[in-house]
């Protein structure tokens, strides 16, 4: 049970700081210029306040390194310390793989923005589905196959605990049902297009594939 501080007032202060920063004040982050911020708002689904909030968190991991190199890439552990949402996720390794632009399991600030933009509630279903597809495509062959599905089930049910482990035959059955429901081109697995179609029919998808900053 966490004790938390109502940070809405903190964010208000941050917002004001940002305002004064634009007006020519001193509070700003090195490297994050006004132009760049504008670029980010154009290319992601986040707004300025959110981007600055993220920057603040990112900056707080190690201010010196970010000051020295704006594109510094923090390792997985550092990122996990600052962003608790990623800590408990069963697809953590996939998130770090898919959203890391250099495929090195570490995030620069832009990678982090990518992740939060895809997870934001503004992001349309199609784009979310495309990212989700890459996350669920565990063996990265461009297809979600029966093997992927059975591993997803393992991850979801936290199968390290022996008590809740779904047997192989059941997993196979589930995979069978899912693939039979949604594959249209009989490749024995599901491509991106099929995945998008199915996700558009499940209203919960947008709610579950989402977290807040």
């Amino acid at each position: 049970m966490s004790v938390f501080v109502d940070s809405s007032d903190k964010r208000l202060i941050l917002y004001c700081a940002w305002k004064t920063g634009i007006m020519g004040g001193s509070q700003s982050y090195p490297g994050l210029t006004e132009d760049l911020l504008e670029d980010y708002t154009v290319l992601t689904y986040l707004n300025k306040g959110e981007i600055l909030h993220l920057m603040k968190k990112f900056y707080s991991i190690d201010p010196d390194k970010v000051t020295a190199n704006y594109n510094h890439r923090f390792g997985k552990d550092d990122i996990l310390k600052a962003f608790d949402v990623l800590r408990t996720n069963p697809f953590q390794d996939r998130l770090f793989r898919v959203f890391s632009s250099q495929n090195d399991e570490s995030f620069s600030f832009e990678d982090l923005l990518d992740l939060y933009s895809a997870m934001s509630s503004e992001c349309p279903m199609e784009v979310k589905a495309a990212w989700a597809f890459r996350i669920f495509d565990l063996d990265e062959d461009g297809q979600i196959s029966a093997r992927d599905i059975s591993e997803i089930i393992d991850r979801l049910t936290d199968s390290e605990h022996k008590s809740h482990y779904i047997e192989l035959s059941s997993k196979k059955k589930i995979a069978d049902v899912i693939l039979k429901e949604m594959q249209f081109d009989h490749t024995g697995s599901m491509g991106l297009v099929e995945f998008k179609i199915v996700m558009s029919r499940i209203p919960e998808f947008q709610n579950s594939f989402y977290f807040r900053i």
Binding site: N89, I152, L156, V177, I178, E181, E204, Y210, R212
Partner: peptide, 20 residues
Amino acid sequence: LRHQFASRVFCGWDFGITTP
């Protein structure tokens, strides 16, 4: 009844959960 399994598999995890 449609997509019961699919919705559990692909939308089962709530990405917003933070505590162990």
